[in-house]
Nucleic acid binder design. Structure first.
Length: 223
DNA sequence: GGCCAGGACACCA
DNA sequence: TGGTGTCATGGC
């Protein structure tokens, strides 16, 4: 891999030790709310740059309108879909993204999410990334939480926690941070799942844009 | 009333 | 490839 000039120095970190601290604090998270793989995948798209509470409203609307199925998502006019998911914000864009996701499933997997998840992880990730509106975080969330694939998810909180502790450079790239985790911890879906959930738990409480480090279980590890 | 949230993409230099 | 603008609701 090509070496890049770094903006700051990086401290070594034992990411498994970090997980154990979080796990000790928050307990097992058993994460990603959702009753089905489709609901989780839809949630992954709707939560882009949006608080989860708003996503919950949008998903509740989808359920109330019996629109949380591949068929319904396929058949609904895009403006109608946008109306239903309005509380999640960016509703026009996200309606198009949901449409693109279903079109992808129809085209490559005969409209079957189950069939998609039977595919090889790397191959499916590549295909998901080619869908308009699905970037790396969304693809990995769908793979891991909806499909049970071994693909570590990097999100805003993960980035903040690692860069603020000096464990990763400020300009770290997504795939680079993903590899940091995948190289450092045992390759287990359940661990990938719970670790990211732990990072979101600590991020939600302590690592917002304006951090409140008081009481954070990772505070003793700050430089 | 401003800030921010479990991103992604188009466009430009 | 790097920087910037755009998309938008709702909680605090």
């Amino acid at each position: 891999m090509k070496q890049r000039k770094r903006k700051n120095t990086v401290k070594p970190v034992d990411l498994m030790a970090v997980y154990l601290v979080l796990r000790e604090t928050f307990g097992h998270r058993g994460w990603w709310p959702g009753d089905s793989p489709l609901e989780i995948a839809v949630g992954a798209i709707l939560t882009q740059n949006t608080s989860w509470k708003n996503v919950e409203k949008a998903i509740a609307n989808l359920k109330a309108e019996r629109a949380l199925s591949i068929r319904a998502l396929r058949d609904l006019p895009v403006d109608e879909l946008a109306r239903i998911i309005r509380p999640s914000g960016y509703f026009n864009q996200k309606a198009l993204k949901l449409k693109a996701f279903v079109e992808f499933l129809d085209r490559d997997y005969k409209g079957s999410l189950t069939a998609a998840f039977r595919d090889d992880t790397a191959a499916l990730r590549e295909k998901l990334l080619a869908v308009k509106g699905i970037g790396k975080e969304t693809a990995d969330s769908i793979l891991l939480y909806a499909g049970g694939h071994r693909s570590f998810v990097i999100d805003l909180y993960t980035r903040r926690i690692l860069t603020r502790h000096g464990w990763a450079p400020e300009d770290v790239e997504y795939d680079e941070m993903k590899a940091m985790f995948e190289d450092a911890i045992p390759p287990e879906v359940e661990l990938y799942n719970d670790y990211h959930a732990q990072l979101v738990a600590v991020g939600n409480r302590f690592c917002r844009k304006t951090p409140s480090c008081e009481g954070c279980p990772l505070q003793p590890m700050l430089p």
